[in-house]
Design a protein around this nucleic acid. Structure first.
Lengths: 181, 181
DNA sequence: CCGTTTCTAATACGACTGTGCTACGAAGTT
DNA sequence: AACTTCGTAGCACAGTCGTATTAGAAACGG
């Protein structure tokens, strides 16, 4: 059900995220969808929180049996729209997220996602700091900057079509992690 | 005229950016506004490009009679939503900018803004590299990362109300510039 | 088997949307 | 003077929007 809403957003844009369009995309009657989401705001909030949920689920399912630096690099990669799945998530999150600027009902979902991401960054930096190479790294004081860098990188990746090369982004990520050493 | 459109976006969100709402905000008839912007897409494109124009105008009007490092720091500050004016610009740009993900008619305006910002970052880093302290800085290889960092920082600043302190952001900016040394 | 809850569907209403069309006054040009 | 262009305004059309209401099917516990 949420995926149908995602498809609408990605294909037609946030402005077309309506009860009717989502219902049509999901193949059910509009009146039926309103049983699940009585108001449009409920629909938007659900869509937004579904992204957060998906991202955290995918991340928590990652294996960390790798060299430390490599594991951290892969973790941060999971926050970038490098394949279709993450691209869709990012587009939806950004599109609906900007609505949270003016719609207080969406703030909690957006804030929670932001908070989860920040904590994830902090934890990964803390993990990285256990590497002898990174003994000079102070995770707490580096979290905000790395978080901003990751989000900005994700933003810039959305500019380009999915089939174009994204090695520049992973290169920048690697360079950033190098600079923390 | 464009300011009326901005007010609508900032107050009511991008979904309320309609010919009628903007006309009402500007105090003219809807039919009259359509003389200037025959279609909704023209309106959106204008709003988006107006932001770019304003930002570049404000930047090009900056005085650079300061210590090098300080001047560069202030330049990057101008790209962050630290006061009402820049905040409005950023909100509008982001709100309408996400529409460019699905609306090809908006791509040129968005791309141009992105390009201008990147070039601005590059030039400022090049200027910074003339400082003896920054002799090891390679502007070209650092542009993308700094650009991503700035945009991410701007994104995160939009989260908080305007009256809250923004020193953390300028601190992060200073720290980033320090790390380039 | 019946009743109750859970879900799906259809329809209707009023508000808002983009946009086409026409018209009217002011300003400027020939 | 007549005429054209420019800016504003108003109305109408068809479409979409969110949402309330009503009703029927399906699942389930008694």
């Amino acid at each position: 059900m949420g995926e149908a809403a995602w498809r609408v957003v990605v294909r037609d844009g946030v402005t077309k995220l309506s009860v009717r369009n989502v219902a049509a995309e999901a193949g059910i009657a509009a009146g039926s969808l309103r049983y699940l989401f009585p108001t449009q705001e409920a629909l938007r909030a659900y869509v937004l929180d579904l992204v957060r949920q998906r991202v955290t689920d995918r991340i928590s399912g990652m294996s960390t049996q790798q060299p430390l630096r490599r594991a951290v690099e892969e973790y941060f990669s999971q926050l970038l729209p490098l394949d279709t799945e993450r691209r869709v998530e990012m587009e939806v999150f950004l599109s609906v997220g900007v609505l949270a600027l003016t719609d207080p009902a969406l703030r909690p979902a957006y804030e929670r996602a932001h908070h989860d991401l920040r904590e994830g960054c902090r934890q990964m930096l803390a993990l990285l700091a256990t590497d002898p190479d990174y003994s000079a790294l102070d995770p707490d004081s580096e979290t905000a900057r790395t978080h901003a860098f990751i989000d900005g990188l994700a933003l810039h990746l959305l500019r380009q079509p999915l089939d174009e090369s994204t090695t520049w982004a992973t290169d920048e990520l690697a360079r950033h992690l190098d600079s923390l050493r």
